[in-house]
């Protein structure tokens, strides 16, 4: 859905020169995608029975963990599990361009990656192995980073996860939304006009004046 497009990038020792050359964004994202140096396993998570379309189980686990921090259990609200947020995010991602899917996969890898966690925040444990408060801190670090690429990544992940939750009509009562008016269902029963020999049905869009202006 929302897709990171890194321009500048983070680093440690030679950050300035690399940022200037615009290289490390790609390199570090690629590291996330490859999962290298992220060999410490992430937390296990149950996968959707109908499978995944875009993400790997490890990437799915990151989405699931992020979703649990972004949408908290709350009276009157459906849970992350009831909605199947990570699965919904995977389905949303399935509809974007293949190049954007690749960037999302890399972003999730980078988010989980021990090396990246260490470079950014001095952590080596994967995101999915952190406790809830630590996860919130990592999310806030990405959001508030002075590196544009991390803010972009946070925005992309946030949009994907929140869209996965709020796309569901079962959230409507919690936010006081009444849903689309019934008139939409009435319109659905009419045949669709395609021109040709079929006469154009009358309606609000038809001009009833003498000559068209």
């Amino acid at each position: 859905m929302d897709v990171p497009r890194p321009e500048a990038a983070p680093g440690t020792l030679s950050r300035r020169s690399l940022v200037k050359r615009g290289l490390l964004g790609g390199a570090l994202l690629a590291a996330g995608g490859a999962g290298f140096l992220a060999l410490r396993g992430g937390a296990p998570v149950s996968l959707p029975p109908d499978g995944l379309l875009v993400f790997t189980p490890a990437q799915f686990a990151v989405l699931d963990a992020v979703a649990r921090r972004m949408v908290r259990p709350r009276p009157g609200w459906p849970t992350v599990d009831q909605i199947g947020v990570a699965r919904a995010a995977d389905r949303i991602a399935a509809r974007v361009e293949p190049s954007a899917q690749k960037e999302l996969r890399q972003l999730l890898g980078l988010f989980e990656n021990g090396l990246a966690g260490f470079l950014f925040g001095g952590r080596t444990r994967p995101f999915t192995r952190l406790d809830g408060e630590e996860q919130d801190r990592v999310l806030a670090e990405w959001r508030d980073s002075r590196l544009a690429v991390r803010r972009t990544g946070h925005a992309a992940l946030r949009t994907l996860v929140l869209a996965g939750y709020y796309q569901s009509p079962s959230v409507w009562p919690a936010v006081g939304y009444s849903g689309p008016p019934g008139i939409f269902a009435d319109a659905a029963s009419q045949p669709e006009w395609r021109g040709g020999d079929q006469p154009r049905p009358d309606g609000n869009g038809v001009w009833h004046g003498e000559t068209l202006p």
Binding site: M1, V3, E7, R95, P180, F184, A187
Partner: peptide, 27 residues
Amino acid sequence: RHSFDGREDHSYPRLYQEMGNRATDDQ
């Protein structure tokens, strides 16, 4: 109007560029 259903999750992908998520490169 025969396919419009007033649902955001259906309408943005059908009726908007990049499913309603077009953005500048830096988002």
